[in-house]
Design a protein around this nucleic acid. Structure first.
Lengths: 219, 219
DNA sequence: GCGCTTGTTGTCCACTTGATCAACAGGCTT
DNA sequence: AAGCCTGTTGATCAAGTGGACAACAAGCGC
């Protein structure tokens, strides 16, 4: 529904069209992966001629990189906003949950099964960025963003982590690694689903608690 | 040139040719990734007509899956043999290195920068297996193999891990996640190389020690 | 209202992929 | 040494890719 074939092929302003393309590209990325983000596929989704995509994005790679960056940065913003409380107020009032609750919320949201498409996209991006410099730059930037934000959360929280940056890196690595296992285990309905959601969740929680020297109040 | 008639274009027996193809396919996988394992590329490497590859592997996917399985299983066998085999350290009893040394050796080998191509292949395989059932099966089997072997090592070692299986999963996830960061950070010469080999190594060691309640004698 | 800028179209190109197949020839059997 | 089984060839197919292009037309300024 984000991109229904436009029966009335309007003539949009450049930035409108460009934005529409980025939106559609994001949908394609999350739904079908980087490999499916082709000129014709995107044009079809937009109800538009293939050449038009090329007109706005002379190089497909730029489109991929930009669409990925959009999704990744949006995710970071959303998740950290939810964890730290929507208000950006500097005052430590009711608006600011206690540090442990912030971490707990962040971990909970990160492990939400609905985030699965994003995990798949990350996996896709890591691999595809091998041969695509612009995408690689976007991926590295997004990873650094995650690292910085989480590190700040840990530092500000005053946890008993000797090296907040290293703790953040390890936590993210743990989540990434376990997400891969979850991704691999899921769609194949064969097997006992060894790394089901609950177990995966428990593992991340254990790791985080061990890393930060706290007890998250999570089940 | 393209098919410079192999000076020695011998006529091999079916199983010889098949084995040669799997070997060459493995080389391609480690050197250029799954995406480079095409009929023509492989045929060129072998000095053989493209159709011949298709003759032995009617579906390319089967070739990919089999070549990957070969590499992955070979790696597991090699690394665990080195870890549990005749001790190269100062362990007094030749036949059985002490458990901590086994883990230390395994971790050391796993973090060897020379293993980088294998990390890239794994990353590639995780992503590519999304649309390739046979490769997916091989990947899952290899992951299970890693899990089982490491879990056995932990269990037999009698470490203070409440849940050996979970500990193994978390350790592998940590290594995978950190390997991804290493892979992403390396080739781009920009930046201060935040997750350089030494730092990465330290993080894995810390994580393993925390997971198993031991001190590896590693620097 | 007309005219022109420019968003948009649809087709075309060169290239790569996996796969097929008749024809060729290597080398073991007789 | 002859003959045949079969490993091997190389041309060819259809599909799909990113990219380039002249021509069309929508909508704004005059």
């Amino acid at each position: 529904m984000a991109t229904m074939t436009n029966p009335a092929r309007r003539r949009l302003k450049p930035d409108e069209r460009r934005a529409a393309m980025l939106d559609a590209a994001g949908d394609v990325l999350l739904k079908d992966g980087i490999g499916a983000l082709t000129l014709r596929h995107l044009a079809l989704q937009l109800g538009v001629a293939p050449g038009l995509v090329n007109h706005y994005f002379p190089e497909i790679e730029a489109l991929v990189a930009e669409a990925f960056a959009r999704i990744a940065e949006g995710e970071v913003a959303t998740l950290f906003a939810a964890a730290t409380g929507i208000s950006e107020t500097v005052a430590p009032d009711p608006g600011a949950p206690d540090p442990v609750a912030q971490i707990a919320r962040l971990v909970t949201d990160l492990l939400d099964p609905q985030r699965r498409p994003v995990s798949l996209l990350w996996l896709d991006a890591w691999q595809a960025s091998r041969n695509r410099p612009r995408l690689r730059a976007a991926v590295i930037a997004a990873m650094d963003l995650w690292q910085d934000r989480l590190c700040a959360l840990i530092t500000d929280g005053g946890f008993a982590a000797p090296d907040p940056a290293a703790a953040a890196t390890r936590i993210l690595a743990l989540i990434d690694g376990l997400s891969i296992q979850a991704v691999m285990d899921e769609p194949g309905v064969q097997g006992p689903d060894k790394t089901g959601h609950a177990i995966l969740r428990g593992m991340v929680i254990d790791g985080v608690e061990r890393e930060l020297g706290i007890r998250l109040g999570l089940v």
